[in-house]
């Protein structure tokens, strides 16, 4: 206590001196006196946390009308010329007019959101993640270390004595399959991204197909579709290089959870004789793809609500790729199963 008083007096006297010299102290004395957890807070600084403070008084709240206040203003506020506007072009880090970060609403790149806390995300946090953690727990006795080996490495087999302890050969096809580390609370598999992709071959003759595909994909995913041109000409499919053939949408975060929930809870149950997703699906990196036929795409509630507005037989099919943070397909499939996606047939891990 005595020390604190000393500090504040020192600070006061220093600042007085500084004021008389019209200089500011380079190192405020207050800063050097650290408050300990056991000593009381300085009442001048931490009177009350802003969260605990009471709001404005009732009179002010009742009479507050921002619109009326703006209209009753005699002199208008300075016009937009005097306000900050984000530069239209980025002119480099040394230019004095720098754009604000994209999270700032005044930025030209600002995208609002999120608008809700998706149910599937909450389920993952409250139920699925703890369960996956329990199911995948791998016990290592104290002193033991679980070594995560890279997958698919081929040992050297032969009579050569120098094959012993030689570094194994990489997998066939130049793939690199990352090691599967034990699942801990840090790396429980979760959804990373969902890509909805629709290739429309008929777009070569009639671009209307591509427009309909774009609208349909935009409707079911809640995001603007991106058009892609063909990289190569394919004679059999009638695809010509450089012509637009497909639309994709990458979904992350809120949109991703809403989309998967819609697929699992609305579309899958409506599909006739639905068995699930093929067990062989997956790229062995933890990403799983399945297809939706045009009839199945039409089952999305967003398309069903104005089905008549889509030209007949122009609704496209789509490929849906679910990218997870899991490294193996087995873990990715376990995550998707817990979210309600069924699998059938032979499971390839």
């Amino acid at each position: 206590m005595a020390l604190r008083e000393f500090c504040s007096r020192m600070g006061a006297s220093l600042s007085q001196d500084a004021r008389s010299l019209s200089l500011r102290p380079a190192w405020p004395a207050q800063q050097q006196c650290r408050r300990l957890a056991t000593t009381a807070a300085d009442p001048d600084i931490e009177t009350e946390a802003s969260l605990n403070s009471t709001g404005p008084d009732e009179e002010l709240v009742k009479n507050y009308d921002p619109i009326a206040r703006a209209r009753s203003r005699r002199r208008q506020l300075p016009s937009s010329r005097y306000k900050f506007r984000s530069p239209r072009y980025y002119r480099g880090p040394l230019h004095p007019h720098q754009p604000p970060p994209p999270t700032d609403p005044s930025s030209r790149e600002f995208v609002p959101g999120p608008f809700s806390l998706p149910r599937l995300e909450q389920t993952w946090e409250s139920t699925i993640a703890p369960d996956l953690l329990t199911l995948n727990y791998q016990h290592a006795p104290p002193g033991m270390e679980i070594v995560a080996k890279a997958r698919g490495l081929r040992p050297w087999v032969g009579d050569n004595p120098y094959f012993k302890n030689r570094v194994p050969r990489p997998p066939r096809g130049g793939m690199f399959l990352p090691a599967r580390k034990p699942i801990t609370f840090r790396n429980v598999p979760r959804l990373r991204e969902i890509t909805v992709h629709s290739m429309v071959g008929q777009a070569m003759e009639d671009s209307g197909y591509l427009h309909v595909a774009g609208m349909a994909v935009q409707a079911i995913t809640n995001k603007r579709a991106q058009v892609h041109e063909a990289k190569e000409s394919v004679q059999n499919w009638g695809v010509k290089k450089g012509r637009p053939v497909s639309v994709t949408v990458d979904l992350q975060g809120e949109d991703m959870y809403h989309f998967l929930a819609k697929v699992v809870e609305v579309v899958f149950p409506r599909i006739r004789d639905f068995k699930g997703i093929k067990g062989t699906s997956g790229d062995s990196y933890g990403n799983i793809t399945f297809g939706l036929t045009p009839e199945e795409v039409a089952m999305f509630p967003e398309i069903e609500v104005n089905y008549d507005m889509y030209p007949a037989k122009m609704i496209p099919g789509a490929h849906v790729t679910i990218k997870t943070s899991a490294v193996t397909d087995r873990d990715a499939r376990m995550l998707l199963r817990s979210m309600g996606v069924p699998f059938y047939g032979k499971l390839v891990d």
Partner: peptide
């Protein structure tokens, strides 16, 4: 679930750690 080749006992026994 983990009673297969990845079980802790198997790991430990491979290292000559545990009968």
């Amino acid at each position: 679930m983990n009673s297969g080749p990845r079980s802790a006992r198997r790991l430990a026994s491979q290292a000559g750690y545990w009968p």
